[in-house]
């Protein structure tokens, strides 16, 4: 039962420094990077509008050259949209084994969490509109601990997320019976 999800993964082991004797991490669905990019773009839009409005107001005064406000904002936004999603995608990964799930995330602040299936209280599979468009889903494991009360793993392929949920559920049922 445990081998089922492993075969369904587009198993691309991370080749970088994350291989630390703890086993190799599995990358998330490539569409997750696209979804992150769209989200970053959406977040940048209000700032761009704000900069443009400011630009218009200041232009009437005629003190400074055109584009001196909106230009840099646009540049920063483009840089963020190009760089950050790719890096975040690269920093994330997970590792599913017989009785536990390991979730790794964070560019600057790394977090590396292991949740044993035996401690999972309930499991969510969520899809926002953006995630549905890209065919990905977020798998969330809830535990009874105060810290890490819920561990979310976004950016899984839709089917894979459901498959993982079934695997974890089957494990819980087997343990309980």
């Amino acid at each position: 039962m445990e081998t089922a999800p492993a075969s369904a993964l587009s198993a691309q082991p991370l080749a970088d420094a994350d291989d630390d004797g703890e086993g190799t991490l599995t990358k998330l669905h490539p569409n997750y990077a696209h979804a992150l990019r769209v989200r970053t773009t959406l977040m940048a839009v209000p700032f761009l509008i704000g900069a443009l409005v400011l630009e218009l107001v200041v232009r009437d005064e005629g003190v400074i050259a055109q584009g001196i406000i909106a230009g840099p904002v646009l540049l920063i936004a483009i840089l963020l949209i190009l760089r950050i999603p790719a890096r975040r995608y690269g920093a994330r990964g997970y590792q599913m084994s017989a009785d536990r799930l390991r979730v790794v995330r964070g560019i600057l602040f790394r977090s590396d969490t292991v949740v044993p299936f035996g401690r999972v209280q309930h499991i969510d599979v969520d899809q926002g509109p953006l995630e549905r468009f890209f065919g990905i889903a977020t798998l969330t494991l809830h535990t009874a601990g105060n810290h890490n009360a819920s561990v979310a793993l976004p950016g899984l392929g839709e089917d894979l997320a459901r498959e993982m949920r079934e695997t974890i559920r089957a494990h819980i049922r087997r343990e309980t019976l």
């Binding site: 602040f109 790394r110 969490t113 292991v114 949740v115 401690r119 535990t143 601990g145 810290h147």
Partner: peptide
């Protein structure tokens, strides 16, 4: 209930971590 190894940028550079245990 869970174990997390958390590292800030400095901690990563210097090779230590905070271990959070879910209680």
């Amino acid at each position: 209930h869970s174990v997390e190894i958390a590292q800030g940028p400095l901690a990563r550079w210097r090779g230590y971590a905070t271990v959070h245990l879910g209680l």
